[in-house]
Amino acid sequence: MVAAAAAIGVLTACGSGDSTVAKTPEATASSPAPSPSPAPPPPVSVPPTTSEPADPCAVNLAAPAIAQTVSELPKDPRSQQGWNPEPIAGNYNECAQLSAVIIKANTNADNPNTRAVLFHLGKFIPTGVPDTFGFNGVDSAQSTGDTVALKYASGITGLDSVVKFRWNGIGVELIGNTG
């Protein structure tokens, strides 16, 4: 009975004058409508990062093995300068039986000496290679996994000469000369 009396007292304590609705002013026609809240910005898409290593069987003229090899070569016989480690051409490939890079003497001469550096499975071939001085390009159309076609472009005649080298299983051999 006490609980019922307390509940009635609570209900009667709030009169119509205490209502929140009675204290809230009504909207007038001249009041501007509230503007809708701006849409949230679209989510930022972050491309997935790939942790896949680069393909070792792709041509890579920035391979560390090239710079290492070039740093160990004897100096250019004409200028007595070392060799620039940045190839001017090439098809270096760790998986190829034979690949090459063309480098130039590290000199400011107008026509620096050039040479090809040959690799077997990504490793420098230091001996048993025919003379490779003077080449200035690789003919990729005539090169295969075991054959490198080196170009010599003559500025005088405008014709390219192509010399092919092939890995024969134990070393490099000269197999063709066209021009």
Rank of each mutant, 00 (worst) to 15 (best):
N136E: 02
I175M: 00
G155Q: 10
T127I: 12
G17H: 08
P41D: 06
T12N: 15
T49A: 15
L73K: 00
N136T: 02
P40F: 10
E173P: 01
G171P: 05
L98Q: 02
P48Q: 11
E52K: 13
D139R: 03
N60R: 08
E52T: 13
D55P: 03
P25N: 11
Q81Y: 07
A109G: 12
K75F: 09
K123R: 09
A7N: 11
I66C: 01
L121N: 11
K23V: 05
S37Y: 06
N60M: 05
P64I: 08
S140C: 10
P48H: 11
D146R: 07
L11W: 12
T178N: 14
V46R: 10
S161I: 11
A89Y: 02
L11R: 14
I8D: 13
G176T: 06
F119M: 01
G169R: 02
G155K: 10
L61N: 07
F133N: 10
A58T: 00
N111V: 11
A5D: 14
P130M: 08
G176F: 00
R78Y: 13
D139Y: 03
K151G: 01
N168M: 05
L150F: 04
I102G: 01
A33T: 07
F165M: 06
A67F: 00
C57G: 10
G145T: 14
K75P: 11
A27T: 15
G82Y: 05
I103R: 03
T50R: 07
E72T: 13
W83P: 00
K164C: 08
P56G: 04
T107C: 07
G171N: 09
S154A: 08
P85G: 00
G155A: 09
T69L: 00
L11F: 12
G9K: 12
I103W: 04
A33F: 05
L11K: 11
S16F: 10
P112S: 04
G179E: 15
A22T: 15
A96H: 09
L98M: 00
A65K: 07
V117F: 06
A3D: 14
S71T: 09
T28K: 14
N108W: 07
T144Y: 02
N106G: 08
S161R: 12
C57Q: 04
A5P: 02
S99F: 05
G137T: 08
G122A: 06
L121A: 11
D76R: 03
G9P: 06
P77H: 00
N177C: 04
T127E: 15
L174A: 01
E86M: 10
V21L: 15
A29T: 15
A4I: 13
G169I: 06
A62T: 13
G128T: 05
G145V: 09
Y152M: 08
P36L: 09
I88E: 06
T50M: 01
T144C: 07
T147C: 04
I175F: 02
A13Y: 14
V44I: 13
D18A: 14
Q81T: 14
V46P: 08
S35H: 12
I103K: 08
Y92M: 07
P126D: 09
D76H: 06
V21P: 10
V21T: 13
A63T: 04
A22F: 11
S45R: 14
E86N: 12
T132M: 10
I8N: 14
W167L: 07
I88K: 03
A58K: 01
I175P: 04
T24P: 06
V2R: 15
V21M: 13
S51M: 12
T114I: 08
K151W: 04
P130N: 06
A5Y: 12
